[in-house]
């Protein structure tokens, strides 16, 4: 079950004045749903492009199914990577794109593609050039799902899709994955929406991997303690603090550690409030910790201050 199918070793990608990938080491196993999370421009698309041999690394090694994907039909035929800015031939309609995909993916399921097109209300006979941004995303999503490739990448597949369509995508993904297990890599910065779908999380920030852990291990691995500032600080003395916010004499501090049940009781006795930290909050905190104090909130929705019970 847990064979390694993707292996990146010391991957470096330099652009003129930018380190898009800065020594990335990564290993992914078969038949899991991975989340590749990070801000816009963190290196998500670059990493996926290099793994699929659509782009080239400056140095390092990228192995997929044990070999480089570059000009390697045996490897390539098992991969599907429709990028967020995917281009299509000028005269193509969605149904042409689907028929093309059917030529190259042996597991292609045309019925499934037809159902999805109906679900997404995609006009399959309109020229792709004339589709809306959301409809364009739907074309990519449908190819990604219906190709049932052993290794499928979804590169921010939700752009332009409304909440209903996004939910539809997540639902179909889980259903189809349950029936046809395969390796899915879902790149996203809408972390709250996908968090529960992921089995493993890889967070990339400015070309570096800053988190690589099972989603279940991350859940509950951090906690926010709030209450009067002096009590909070005394209680958390010596712990790994990710973030601190104050409001008058009150403080809300997030620590990158789980509390034992004894410690939780202790906190409650002190009159402190404990609240869980969502994956999204944790990623935001870790990303910002990397930036130092000058950072801005960036693309992540920041709902840390929201009172949670």
């Amino acid at each position: 079950m847990n064979d390694t199918i993707v292996e990146a070793r010391n991957l470096i990608k330099h652009y003129k004045d930018l380190n898009a990938l800065d020594n990335v080491n990564l290993s992914l196993s078969a038949n899991r749903i991975y989340g590749l999370l990070g801000r816009n421009g963190a290196g998500k698309t670059t990493l996926m492009s290099i793994l699929t041999a659509q782009a080239f690394a400056t140095s390092g090694e990228a192995l997929v199914f044990g070999a480089s994907a570059y000009e390697n039909d045996a490897v390539l035929s098992r991969i599907c990577f429709i990028r967020e800015s995917q281009k299509y031939p000028d005269d193509f309609q969605p149904r042409h794109a689907f028929r093309s995909a059917a030529l190259f993916y042996k597991n292609w399921d045309q019925d499934f593609a037809d159902r999805l097109a109906e679900d997404f209300q995609l006009p399959v006979k309109r020229r792709i050039k004339k589709l809306s941004r959301g409809q364009l995303s739907a074309v990519g999503v449908i190819i990604g799902l219906a190709s049932r490739a052993e290794l499928t990448f979804f590169d921010e597949p939700y752009l332009g899709l409304d909440a209903v369509a996004r939910q539809l995508f997540y639902d179909r993904l889980v259903e189809d994955y349950a029936e046809h297990p395969r390796t899915i890599i879902l790149s996203s910065h809408l972390i709250d929406e996908v968090a529960n779908l992921l089995e493993h999380v890889v967070v990339i920030d400015r070309g570096r991997i800053i988190m690589d852990a099972d989603a279940e291990d991350i859940r509950g691995s951090a906690v926010t303690v709030s209450g009067s500032a002096d009590k909070v600080d005394a209680f958390l003395a010596g712990r790994k603090i990710l973030h601190r916010e104050t409001l008058g004499s009150l403080a809300s501090v997030t620590v990158d550690e789980a509390l034992s049940s004894r410690e939780r009781n202790e906190a409650l006795e002190l009159g402190l409030e404990l609240s869980p930290v969502s994956l999204q909050q944790l990623v935001v905190r870790k990303t910002m910790a990397g930036f130092g104090t000058t950072s801005t909130t960036g693309d992540f929705a920041d709902d840390t201050l929201e009172a949670r019970r």
Partner: peptide, 18 residues
């Protein structure tokens, strides 16, 4: 089934199975 749990709660099937 675990797949039904996964689909209903929109969670990863492996997690539901666990």
């Amino acid at each position: 089934s675990t797949n039904e749990f996964a689909a209903f709660h929109r969670i990863n099937p492996a997690t539901a199975a666990k």
